[in-house]
Design a binder for these strands. Structure first.
Length: 421
RNA sequence: GGAGAGGUGGCCGAGUCGGUCGAAGGCAGCCGCCUGCUAAGCGGUUGUGGGGGUAAAACCUCACCCAGGGUUCGAAUCCCUGCCUCUCCGCCA
């Protein structure tokens, strides 16, 4: 969420950023109702002041047994007027809040301007896509041949966009989770295992709600939401807290299952592990001081890249342009891994700096040593990595002519075997 | 699921029959004094958010005693609802 005062005072900046993101949203109505709100607020506060002053007077005179009926009479009228003001103010506040909740973050000035994903900018590449002396298969074919990925039975158990992993497939999934968590914690990220269904407030805090209700699974009675990413519960660890400067930065890593409706993605990636309703992911989350957040984004991205490098999977880093940037993000790098079966790079991690956008929504602040007042922290997160997609990448990149799959060296201690056959 | 208790400032803790309570007292922190010895004593000070104001402060004002409603001229104090915590019983991975 943006700061109402900031929007008031810098609406030019906000309009520009909305335009760059491809949003068609006018600020006029917001500015007008804000103006009205502030006027009403001042008048209401004057009345309250009057009421406070006279109420004290009433108390004083009453102890002296004086007649206060006329004052009480006046205050009755004042209180009625305050109530009227409050009703109006509440309506206005709801309107401005509602509006602000639907305004996306302002992109950082280093974010390339562009309409959609075709205008994202490649920042760097790592690794050489392997040259095959045979036609490389898709991971779902490899999975079927090895009998480690079973989409048919999964659809019987649950439905489309689910996968039953079996034998070495299940073991590979688990190996990757452990490998990634071990690596991340060794770098100083604190491992947490959070609730994976959360309340509405948490979803609001990170920006999934109210705008993206359609993309979430929800429970009824009582109402909870299944998390689409560990970002939600982990960022909300510090919701409504005031942290101390000396406690920052805070680094967390978490493995969780993730659940996504994938509404509106009909026909996309219908086969394989790329787009599932349920998938596993290891996430990195940072809480940092504002002045550090863009450096922290670079190091967070490097930490995610490190996993791909250790797995020896070719990838590239892409800076998302304004038109492709997520709602809450100020800047995002996507890591795209090479999939030989599809002959293209596919997203496997998304690393973002949200600046103070989530912190303001979730009310996560910090106090500087020796300074008055508080400031919002900056939050960041990134996948390190999406497990299912990593499985797909390993199967496709490490496949052999005879159908078996070599296990990447760093995973062998976790897998117990060198080859999946 | 059943029966009770409770949620007050960084922490502990008071708040009487609703009125001068942003809230006693203690601890902790900060500033100063005193003392010369490893610490005590004395004085002062210490929250957050909004609006106004200022070059910036100062300053003025409103709100905040879990959250949201209600009663009242006036609520931390009374009523209702919700959330959370604790104790006991039951059930259970």
């Amino acid at each position: 969420m943006l700061d109402a005062k900031f929007v008031r005072e810098h609406f030019g900046v906000v309009e520009e950023s909305l335009k760059n993101r491809g949003y068609d949203l006018s600020l006029d109505e917001f500015l007008a109702s804000e103006e009205q709100r502030r006027t009403l607020l001042r008048e209401a506060e004057e009345l309250r002041n009057r009421r406070n002053v006279v109420s004290e007077e009433i108390a004083r005179q009453k102890t002296q047994k004086k007649d206060v009926a006329h004052m009480i009479d006046e205050m009755k009228r004042v209180s009625d007027r305050i109530k009227e003001y409050d009703t109006q103010l509440k309506a206005l506040e709801e309107r401005t809040c509602e509006f602000l909740l639907n305004v996306p973050n302002i992109p950082h000035h280093s974010v390339p301007i562009g309409r959609d994903e075709t205008e994202n900018v490649e920042v760097r590449r790592w690794g050489e896509p392997r040259q095959f002396d045979f036609e490389p298969l898709n991971h779902w074919d490899i999975g079927a041949i090895l009998d480690i990925l079973d989409f048919e039975r999964a659809s019987r158990i649950a439905g489309a966009r689910f996968c039953l992993m079996k034998g070495a497939g299940a073991r590979l999934e688990r190996a990757l989770m452990n490998f990634m968590l071990d690596l991340n914690t060794a770098k100083g990220y604190r491992e947490v295992f959070p609730p994976i269904i959360v309340n509405r407030e948490s979803m609001k805090g990170t920006g999934q709600l109210p705008k993206f209700e359609m993309e979430l699974f929800r429970t009824c009675n009582p109402e909870y939401y299944l998390i689409p990413t560990a970002e939600v519960p982990v960022t909300n660890i510090h919701r409504q807290e005031i942290l101390q400067e000396k406690d920052l930065p805070l680094y967390y890593t978490a493995y969780t299952p993730c659940f996504r409706r994938e509404a509106g993605s009909y026909g996309k990636d219908v086969r394989g592990l790329i787009r599932q309703h349920q998938f596993n992911k290891v996430e990195l989350v940072k809480f940092v001081k504002p002045e550090d957040s863009y450096d922290e984004l670079e190091s967070l991205t490097r930490d995610a890249e490190d996993i791909l490098q250790r797995l020896d999977l070719p990838y590239r880093v892409v800076a998302l342009c304004t038109g492709d940037l997520g709602f809450a993000a100020a800047k995002t790098y996507d890591l795209e891994v090479w999939l030989p079966g599809q002959q293209r790079y596919r997203e496997i991690s998304s690393c973002s700096n949200f600046a103070d956008f989530q912190a303001r929504r979730a009310d996560i602040r910090f106090k500087r040593e020796g300074k008055k007042g508080t400031e919002f922290v900056h939050t960041l997160n990134g996948s390190a990595l999406a497990i299912g997609r990593t499985v797909a990448a390993i199967l496709e990149n490490y496949q052999q002519r005879d159908g078996c799959v070599i296990v990447p060296e760093v995973l062998r201690p976790y897998m117990g075997v060198e080859v999946i056959r």
